[in-house]
Design a binder for these strands. Structure first.
Lengths: 336, 336
DNA sequence: GTGAAAGCGCTAACAG
DNA sequence: CTGTTAGCGCTTTCAC
């Protein structure tokens, strides 16, 4: 009962293997009647084609890989959900690889995937100062379709799904200023991630448009070490030049910032106004509730996957430098 | 430059394919010298064995599947993180499938995986009244190693990774009562999930141990429809027999309960005390901060994966009814 | 419209 | 210790 294969199927039908193969592939060269017979027996035996055999032969399969920095994070979790919703419906299998912001790991995953296991990739890159040569290299070695989302390598010519980071950060910063901030700060990653750069640019331009001089110390670079971030923020919030507003561009930092405010008994929004980029569902429940700039994570995943599958199936041909831009959503709550 | 294969490698070395194969497999029947030569050239050409070919031949590969109800949920996200940490380190590839509490989907994933794509599965079942025959069936058809975690089919003889649901819920409920609750309620899933049943049992026994009579209306069955849950809770919290304590056994319900309290201006913990099973990182930030019973999600994933890989590699042989029990962690905060 | 045959890249007897 | 051989199960020319 361990699953029947094509050879047995063919034998039982009194047909050749190739005929059966074609029939199952719904080839036009097979008569309707034969197709019917084949399909019926196949169903009866619950025949499942062996993917290794067919992938080996066709040098291509219905498996894709998703490479992301993290999964314990609402944004990426939602994105994976979006991706899976389309791969599932198109009968693709989805591998998942987590880099944990570790460039070496990212490289090693990529290198591993040069073995041909997959037919395409969806990637959100990890922070790292080293550039994106490994992606380019991977592409040259494999010619596999790849779609990047959110954290994209700006310099490389690949299809991407991003959001209006610049505009939405600009808008959010404006709100901060309009509600009275004189000296807001921007929390960013240390590494020059394209996404971060765009957001910072939005922040900076908003300040300048309102006649607030931008200075470098308005950008607080957070690291991956949450302990360190905590201390940095604590120090900052206790200092004389305490900011009166924060735009936190990364989910983790939002939480830390909020926590530090509470600990120092700083009143949000009176002492400090706070807007964070996050998809946390508890933002509205915090007291005061947290204003958020949320990315359409699920849809980003969905778009990325849809695009990738199109490329794999060559329906859309040279989507090669498609850039899909979705809109972030600003939700103002009590923290501003 | 599209990757070299074993045949070319063998030719260039002046060896037979099988020798190369054995050398790469570090077989004892190959001389150290030959191995060295082979390995060196392989590295030089960045040779990567074609997984389809070898899987086809060996009828087994280094791919596993993870089937879970949801990923946008701290518990499952952490579990996946744990799983991936071990599959990654053992050079396995991890497929992910989300059922969204949809039994049909769960079945169809399982059926799909009968094609032999994978060498083992890690599963957390979705709610559903229909029993778990499909898992048994799958096992009979494939004989593949499977490990269940958290939401496990209690009646089936498979290895499982669970937590001390009964004891920890018992303990949490006791805290509720000790801090003054006379009439706590238990939020549960509608479907009779084993996990839920154990928790409910802990709740019930705790009540009885404190001389509080248990009645059926102390169990509130929540559905998958969050809108509906919201209304149910609202009604309950506005009713005359409003509970003075809540143990919410599912993350989503915790959030809803908290939200409704806020909306109705019920004072937590004065009017209602609240403990929720959740791995939310923002629990401590809520005001009042939320008491939680957290499952060691990451470790559960890790244990499950470790066990599965052992089974696949037949190191541990008949782990078949191993049950690993980890401890939940109760963190009391202001909501109690 | 159907079948015979070759072969995808690798592994595993079995010889030598 | 190395090589020869025979497939794993499927797809794809190419004949018929």
């Amino acid at each position: 009962m361990k699953g029947i294969n094509m050879i047995q199927l063919a034998k039982e039908l009194g047909l050749s293997v190739s005929t059966v193969s074609k029939a199952l592939g719904d080839s036009h060269e097979i008569s309707a009647n034969t197709k019917k017979r084949v399909l019926e027996l196949a169903k009866q035996y619950k025949y499942k084609p062996n993917p290794f055999a067919s992938n080996l032969r066709k040098k291509k399969g219905k498996q894709i890989a998703v490479i992301i920095p993290d999964i314990v994070n609402n944004f990426f979790a939602l994105a994976v959900d979006g991706i899976e919703s389309v791969t599932m419906s198109k009968h693709y299998d989805t591998f998942i690889y987590l880099t944990h912001e570790n460039l070496e790991r990212e490289k090693s995953v990529l290198e591993h995937l040069e073995n041909g296991l997959i037919s395409g990739l969806i990637i959100s890159v990890c922070t790292g100062k080293e550039g994106y040569g490994h992606f380019q290299q991977f592409y040259e070695n494999t010619k596999l379709p790849m779609v990047f989302f959110d954290r994209v390598p700006d310099l490389l010519q690949f299809p991407k799904v991003i959001t209006n980071n610049y505009e939405s950060t600009h808008e959010a910063t404006l709100k901060l200023i309009k509600s009275g901030c004189k000296r807001p700060v921007f929390f960013a990653t240390t590494e020059p991630l394209y996404t971060s750069i765009e957001r910072r640019r939005g922040f900076q331009d908003a300040l300048q448009s309102q006649g607030i001089a931008f200075s470098d110390d308005m950008v607080v670079n957070c690291s991956d070490d949450m302990e360190e971030n905590y201390n940095t923020l604590r120090k900052l919030f206790m200092s004389k030049k305490r900011p009166d507003g924060v735009f936190a561009s990364i989910e983790k930092y939002v939480i830390t910032a909020y926590q530090v405010c509470k600990e120092l008994k700083l009143n949000i929004p009176k002492d400090i106004k706070l807007i964070g980029m996050t998809n946390m569902r508890t933002a509205a429940l915090l007291n005061p509730s947290l204003s958020t700039l949320a990315q359409p994570a699920f849809d980003m995943g969905k778009e990325a996957a849809t695009l990738l599958l199109k490329m794999i199936e060559k329906k859309s041909y040279a989507a090669a430098n498609d850039i899909i831009v979705l809109e972030n959503e600003l939700t103002l709550r009590d923290s501003v």
